[in-house]
């Protein structure tokens, strides 16, 4: 229960700040707030273009967040239970508790999706997860498994928040890689086979995630 609520709150925050931006007119202005360091999560949330200054509207902002999460949770519950009236007995308290727990979480940095990037990413993601599963299934059934496990560090250059989480979670689905640990801005990747190349694959994934979130192309990483 408590494990699922942060995720659901994320869904709420996502809807709140999601705007489709395919033409990338002003990616810089939107991406900059997300680049701030992960130190003060309790400072005023900068979730989007319509967020006012720090003076006053903190309360309204929080109420809006609560209402958005409650709405998202209620719709999910309704669809899960096929809008059955008697299921509300459990659904209503769950929605209220979920939205309230979510309101205690630090606000996530704002982000937006590129529609074209999302479609391309979904397609690529499907192909890669099939590749990864066939690779590991083949090793499981093969007599000698061809394992040469190792750990490799990889520098994280994506902004904190949704892009970085997406990157770390997707690595686990790529063939032969697993994100094992995070030390500040360095990710420790576990590899099934030390002989395969790591950097080109991850750099490719990184640029795809930049396209997905309508971020400007990587500044220093090549």
């Amino acid at each position: 229960m408590c494990a699922t609520s942060p995720m659901r709150q994320n869904a709420g925050a996502r809807v709140q700040t999601l705007t489709l931006a395919d033409r990338q007119d002003h990616p810089q202005a939107q991406a900059v707030p997300a680049l701030r360091p992960d130190t003060g999560p309790d400072t005023s949330p900068d979730t989007g273009p319509d967020t006012g200054p720090d003076t006053g509207p903190q309360r309204r902002q929080r109420l809006r967040r609560w209402l958005t999460s409650a709405l998202v949770l209620a719709v999910i519950w309704g669809l899960l239970t096929n809008w059955r009236a008697d299921a509300v007995v459990f659904g209503l308290p769950a929605v209220v508790v979920g939205a309230t727990l979510g309101a205690f979480l630090p606000p996530a940095p704002g982000w937006r999706l590129s529609l074209r990037g999302a479609l391309a990413f979904a397609l690529w993601f499907g192909v890669q997860s099939v590749r990864g599963a066939i690779d590991v299934a083949g090793r499981a059934f093969s007599p000698d498994m061809a394992l040469r496990p190792c750990f490799r560090p990889y520098p994280l250059t994506l902004p904190q928040g949704a892009p970085r989480v997406m990157f770390i979670n997707t690595i686990t689905l790529l063939p032969g890689t697993l994100s094992a640990e995070i030390h500040g801005d360095t990710l420790i990747v576990h590899m099934l086979d030390a002989r395969t190349a790591l950097e080109p694959e991850l750099a490719d994934l990184e640029s795809r995630i930049r396209a997905l979130f309508a971020l400007p192309p990587s500044p220093e990483h090549s």
């Binding site: 997860s129 099939v130 990864g132 599963a133 066939i134 690779d135 590991v136 299934a137 499981a140 394992l147 496990p149 686990t172 689905l173 063939p175 032969g176 697993l178 094992a180 576990h190 099934l192």
Partner: peptide, 16 residues
């Protein structure tokens, strides 16, 4: 052989 390799099998094969 170890917990990390086993996680590869679980996350990828079971996911697909």
């Amino acid at each position: 052989p170890d917990v990390f390799c086993r996680l590869h099998a679980l996350t990828k094969a079971d996911g697909l």
